[in-house]
Design a protein around this nucleic acid. Structure first.
Lengths: 220, 220
DNA sequence: GAACCATTTTGTTGGACCAAGATTCGTAAT
DNA sequence: ATTACGAATCTTGGTCCAACAAAATGGTTC
């Protein structure tokens, strides 16, 4: 069934944005029941090949890269020390490493958004909410690059990053230290001071590293 | 629905190989119809998280990596220009950006492996095999970092990267230019010349960029 | 031990209804 | 007569139900 629909798409030469026939049309076209067609559509949707909106119908899409990464967001796994250091090194590479491009592209809007996001940290919600905000901050930072592949990667790693943040921050105050570190990073951005930006961001990531290590020591 | 089933799995602590309740059980458990449950199961199956066989029922699995590959085997659709540039920029960030760490960690064994891999390029197999070797080369390069998170990301992006390679190289000779570029990169590594390494690697990636752009121009 | 049958479970079908967006059409105001 | 607005209708995906087909298991019988 999935194959038939794929063939249909290929045959008609449909491309991203085009609409598919309605589910009922597909039923008659392929002599299948609507439930069967629906299951096939579910699969195509899961593959990111179609987007389906109620009352609108299905349209061709290509979110496969994002879907591919979604696959791995199902991890509830425990974060090992190696995973932690790997992910943190990765983030350093991405966030600190792309400082130049960030400086090239950054707008006042970006800076305002970052200040706003960081402001939420100071409001002092519980640790889970604060972690989400923390993640959002870094995500927003990376989004300045306008690179969907990198954003997708960040989405994949979100569960792990969140866990790292929660774990690393149990004994630190989000309201004070993390907030201040973020603030320093944004200040450097606002001043278009690349070196300060890199230095402070790296320090911020390193502090998370140290806290996590201490946690692990304590746990072991 | 998918979320509910996921929660159920997490809650029960089920792991690969374990069986899920039957569809009808899930119906009563979640107060949903069998069709709804089935559609959710299709999604999970599409994600490679469950395997479902008649009479047996559904068992937990983890074929997510395999699924990630399947996603892109659907290729009647091609890599969009944005996906291409995103992925390529990402690779630049990773490979060129981690030059320092690579220099710190590299061993003679790494260099020997890279030379060996690149040697296969000169053997001049068809474009698909050559692309695989090309990918393997860059994968091996990144593996020097010993960072599993980054390696996983590379695995997921493999289908896209392969496609980019195939597309970019249709008119170039793997046996000559790509081989020579790689060789230059390894030579820089062998000489522990970080700047040369970065310069050559970046140039290598950029050439792929240019070729792809030309392809797109030609197609348009 | 092998052939056979009953049972369980997924696979598929056809139908039905709902909710909500899209469309149409009639009415009223200008 | 034309336009604007609102209500009725149509369309479409979302959900549900009941039933049958097909496949694989497990037990039963010879």
């Amino acid at each position: 069934m999935v194959g038939q629909i794929r063939d249909l798409i290929a045959e008609k030469g449909l491309t991203v944005g085009d609409g598919l026939p309605t589910e009922r049309d597909l039923c008659t076209q392929f002599n299948a029941s609507r439930n069967t067609v629906r299951e096939a559509m579910r699969i195509l949707k899961a593959y990111g090949l179609v987007e389906v909106r109620p009352k609108i119908g299905a349209t061709i899409a290509d979110n496969r890269l994002a879907r591919a990464f979604d696959l791995f967001s199902f991890n509830t796994m425990e974060v090992s020390r190696k995973t932690f250091s790997d992910v943190q090194a990765f983030r350093d590479l991405l966030e600190v490493g792309s400082a130049e491009q960030i400086m090239d592209r950054i707008t006042d809007r970006d800076i305002a958004d970052l200040y706003a996001l960081n402001g939420k940290l100071a409001e002092g919600a519980d640790i889970h909410v604060a972690s989400e905000v923390d993640y959002d901050f870094h995500y927003r930072l990376i989004s300045i690059l306008g690179n969907d592949a990198i954003l997708d990667v960040y989405k994949v790693m979100k569960p792990v990053i969140l866990r790292i943040m929660q774990k690393g921050k149990t004994r630190r105050s989000y309201k004070t230290e993390t907030f201040a570190e973020h603030q320093g990073v944004i200040d450097a951005l606002a001043a278009r001071d690349r070196l300060a930006f890199q230095y402070r961001l790296r320090a911020h990531l390193m502090i998370g590293f140290k806290n996590f290590s201490d946690e692990m020591e304590g746990a072991a």
